[in-house]
Structure formats: C-alpha cells, structure tokens
Design a protein around this nucleic acid. Structure first.
Length: 293
DNA sequence: GGTAGACCTGGACGC
DNA sequence: GCGTCCAGGTCTACC
C-alpha cells in the first residue's frame, strides 16, 4: 500500500529526518542525506509492519509492503503525521528568526520540526538512554532493547519494532541490567514500563495535552530518570520549546560562541537564549554554531 | 534550596 | 593485556 500526506508549508523531509540523533536509533533506518526513513512498527492490533517514508511534493509518501485495513491505515496516517509533525505552523518562530543572522537559514531550510518516535513511551525511554553516557552507549542500549524485547516483522526477524511497555514490564531489573546492559537506568525503565502498563501513567495523553508547559515539565520530572535535561528534550519533542535541553554539549557550544572557550554553566546557556521566550528551545536547537574545533 | 557522592559503562591513556 | 581515570545526567542524602 502507498499513499501521500500533505504537510503545512514550508516542509523539508530531510530536515525533519536529520533534526537530531533519533534517526540513528533503531527501529529507524535511513540514509546519510535523509531522503528516506524506514522503521518497523507494532500497530494497536499487535500486527507488526515495516514502513518506508520518502518526500513527495509538499509532503510525504508512505509505503508498506503490507495491505492495511481502514483502521490500520488511519493509525499509520496519525502515526506518520505525529512523527514528522507535518501540520505544525512555524511562521511565528520564522518571523523572529529573520532578525537573527544565526537563524537566517531556518525558514528557507524549513527547520523547526523535530523527529518523533511513534509513541511518547518510546521517546521517553530513548531520552533516558541518552543521559549520562556517550552517544555510542545510547545506541548500544537502545539496540539491545529492540533486539531483546521488540516484536519481529513476520518474514524478516532482523527487523523489530520498538518494545511495547508490556514487553519491558514483563522483564525484571536483573535482566535489564545484566543482559540488556542498561546499567543503573534499569529500574527507571522498568518502573516507567510498569506504570504505563498499569494505567497509572498515560504518557500518550501528553501529546495532545493543553496544560501549561511548566506543569507538563513537572509531570515529566516526576518520571524516575528524567531530570532537567531529559524533560526539556521531551518538551522539544512535544512541540514545546520554552526550555533548553542543557547538556555538556550545550555548555561547550555556548562557551565557544560567547565566552571565548571559558567554562560556562547552565545559567550562561539560559542567559544566551533568554530573549527567545517560547522559542528558546528551537533557537538553541537550530542555532548556526561556530565550529569549536 | 544547594551540594556531594553514587550510579554504570566504554573509551582513552599509561604502564 | 591490565589497571586507572574520566565523561556523561540524575537521584538521594545531607546540610
């Protein structure tokens, strides 16, 4: 089956795909230039399918070798629309960005969208896996999770969907620690999966929540393993850019950009983008940094 | 509210 | 090849 979805202009498929490191994390597959994005997904029915997305005019082409019934097609449409944030209007951000040379590129390059996973559960788990480790460690832990707990694609077991909360919840801390190699994050991931499975935490509700960003941030911070950086990263994924995901990279870049390489803390990163208000996170994310090397 | 130390792993480095 | 050190955010205990 194949169909197309129209995006709110301006839209650049590669810009979304390459908006951050998520594209390197299973079940995502892509190419260097981001001209296609493939991933294996488990639908609500439990069925596992593989999808390939490519640019198509002012939107995206969705392709799968599988036939989809109307309900499945509806779910895939919603999933892809969410992942690529195709309906979002960035005109207010672009209007402000036009006055800043370091962001002069954002409108012409259709920057602003941040690649999302099919579910917020997947994005929360992946975000926790980015904390306190090198990027290689993040990729390794995520690969282990997918390979050990993800449902395989019928006919090609090398492709697996991201694990459901139920699949992880059925595991235990020792397995996650010693086999999946999640280290001290194991109890955090297990607790998250069990809270979602038990219905105590409805993460997916946050995707459409209208509550103010500071309140939403508090809810995210209540998840074990999610601190200031992780919460801000998740808010960015949720389309809220009021906070900056300040990590060591952010401090390094701000240090080089404005402090002549002298060490800086989170306060200086905040101060650097204080004037961007609700667009603070996007201004930081798409800033045209001087190369510190 | 602020701070110190622990958490876990892999990579870099010195021997 | 082995041992040591360090980087990377968050949590908890303590002040």
């Amino acid at each position: 089956m194949e169909f197309e979805l129209l995006a709110h202009p301006p839209f650049s498929f590669p810009a979304v795909v390459r908006s951050h490191g998520w594209v390197q994390m299973l079940p995502f597959r892509s190419n260097e230039s981001g001209t296609w994005l493939a991933f294996t997904a488990q639908l609500d029915s439990g069925r596992v399918i593989d999808l390939k997305l490519t640019p198509a005019g002012d939107g995206v082409r969705v392709m799968t070798a599988d036939a989809l019934d109307p309900a499945e097609r509806g779910q895939v449409t919603g999933m892809v629309s969410w992942m690529l944030d195709i309906d979002r209007d960035f005109s207010e951000f672009y209007a402000q960005a036009r006055r800043e040379p370091k962001l002069a590129h954002v409108q012409s390059e259709a920057r602003g969208r941040v690649l999302r996973s099919p579910t917020l559960f997947e994005d929360v788990v992946k975000t926790i896996l980015t904390t306190n480790t090198a990027w290689g460690g993040t990729l390794r832990m995520n690969r282990n999770l997918v390979e050990q707990f993800g449902q395989p694609l019928p006919g090609d077991e090398s492709l697996r969907a991201f694990p459901t909360p139920q699949a992880i919840a059925a595991s235990d801390v020792d397995t996650l620690r010693n086999v999946t190699k999640l280290g001290y994050r194991s109890p955090y991931i297990l607790e998250l999966a069990r809270r979602v499975t038990d219905g105590e935490l409805d993460l997916e509700d946050y995707r459409l929540s209208q509550i103010p960003t500071p309140e939403l941030r508090k809810e995210l911070l209540a998840i074990k393993g999610v601190g200031g950086y992780a919460a801000a990263n998740l808010l960015m994924i949720l389309g809220r850019s009021d906070f900056i995901p300040i990590d060591s990279w952010a401090m390094k870049m701000v240090s080089h950009e404005w402090y002549d390489g002298q060490p800086v803390g989170p306060e200086q990163v905040e101060a650097a983008f204080a004037g961007w208000g609700a667009w603070k996170g996007l201004a930081y994310w798409f800033w045209n940094w001087d190369n510190p090397e």
